[in-house]
Amino acid sequence: MTQPPTDLTAVRRPLDSAQGLPNPHYTDPAVFAEETQAVLLSTWAGLAVAADVPEPGDAKPITFLGMPLLLLRDRAGVVRVFNNTCRHRGMILVEGPRKIEGAIRCPYHSWCYATDGRLVTTPHVGGPGQNTHAAINRSELGLIEVRSHIWRDVVFVNISGDAPAFEEVHAGLLARWAEFDQPHHHGGTDSTFTLPVRTNWKLAVENYCESYHLPWVHPGLNSYSRLEDHYNIAEAGLFSGQGTSVYRQLTSETGDTFPDFSTLSDFWNEGAEYIAVYPNVLMGAQRDHAFAIVLEPVDTQNTIEHIHLFYATEDTDAALRAKNTAQWKEVFKEDVFVVEGMQRGRHAPGFDGGRFSPAMDGPTHCFHDWVAHRMQLHRAAQVDAAE
């Protein structure tokens, strides 16, 4: 028997009377599948970072929500995303990260593709020794490219292919952080790590959005960047997060710091902002470095956090980079017990989605309202299609 859809009426109320998303949005595989279509595949979701494929020919297979994708930097240096499947019989093309020296060759029947996706050879397709056939039009059988956009080195994808342009969807955020529209240099292998977390991906977003938890979950951070130094950021239907007016630069043993991004306004001397770019990318902007967390939704209660650190210049002190990575890793690990605890809590049958602090939880409610709205639009479209 098909379960009725979740009631999202209370989620869409004003902040002071709203409730959070109902339990099935964190525990029910059927709702996860519905949410995948409504929230993750039809918007601009984070997939990876361009630094994952630094040189022309570099390729990295990625499984995203069960789909085999291929992140690839082509010969011209353009980062692209393709389906990682041969157009002949659907064979996986690339099994692991590697450099494509010549063409992308299917291991099954040796059909070959250029790094820009063009089908270039089809051995014996017309019979032994016959590499062409009138029925096989190579120009129509290139790799299927997934719509993508790169911002601050993060590779966003629109799987459905019909979302408005990234620049249109996120015009407000791009304007807010326009000063950072400059190169972001990945710190390298010592500036990335992953955190597998036993939680629904949305709880990672919700926790990141707000500063309310700082005094208890991040006492070290709160010792200098206090709760009262923070402010809420909530742009309805687009993004939300928090900022601080007290940012402390990391220093080396000799007092050195990372080089600043260029021509920043005075606010960034001591200010910083931390914003969730809906649906699944968490970003930080500071004067001397930035970070991006790409959340990989695995299932209802498992998420992998892919953390990457970026700098204003390519050449930064290795010891200071390592110190910075260790510091952020400690901060992000402090959140793990919280998001995992909330996930376990969502299995309580009497929990009604919870309430929001009108003063402190505006960014989280903004995200809940966006998810609920996307779900309502998806359900309405499903009804229209069935009629």
Rank of each mutant, 00 (worst) to 15 (best):
F261I: 04
K333Y: 07
H186F: 03
N324T: 15
T364Q: 13
E35W: 00
L119W: 03
G345D: 05
A38D: 03
L72Y: 03
S223A: 05
F337E: 13
M1E: 08
I150E: 06
L21R: 01
A319G: 14
R80F: 03
F367N: 02
R344D: 06
V79R: 00
H186L: 10
P196N: 13
N232G: 12
L320P: 13
D52H: 08
H133Y: 11
Y113N: 03
P5Y: 05
H308W: 15
A326I: 10
K99L: 08
D361A: 13
Y274M: 14
V294F: 07
G284K: 03
L173W: 10
T63Y: 07
P22W: 02
G127F: 05
D7C: 07
G90D: 05
T316M: 06
A175C: 11
P358F: 14
F258D: 01
N280Q: 06
R379D: 00
A381T: 08
G345S: 07
N200T: 02
A381G: 11
F193G: 05
A318W: 02
D16T: 12
A165W: 08
T85Y: 15
L69D: 01
L72H: 03
G362W: 12
A318P: 15
L15Q: 07
N232E: 11
A204R: 02
W177V: 15
P5C: 08
A359S: 12
F32T: 11
A178P: 12
V294L: 05
S148K: 02
S357N: 14
G142T: 01
Q286R: 12
V331S: 12
D58Q: 08
Q37E: 13
V298L: 09
H185E: 14
P4A: 13
R87Y: 02
R147I: 09
H218V: 10
R374P: 07
L93Y: 00
E270V: 05
H88G: 03
G77K: 01
L69E: 00
P97Y: 08
S245M: 13
F332C: 11
G57R: 01
V79E: 03
T194V: 14
G241R: 01
D7Y: 09
A292F: 04
D256G: 14
D181A: 15
L65H: 04
R344K: 15
D317K: 10
P123A: 04
D384T: 14
L41N: 05
P164L: 08
N83K: 08
G241W: 08
G362S: 09
L93F: 00
G354Q: 09
V298F: 01
N83V: 14
H109S: 10
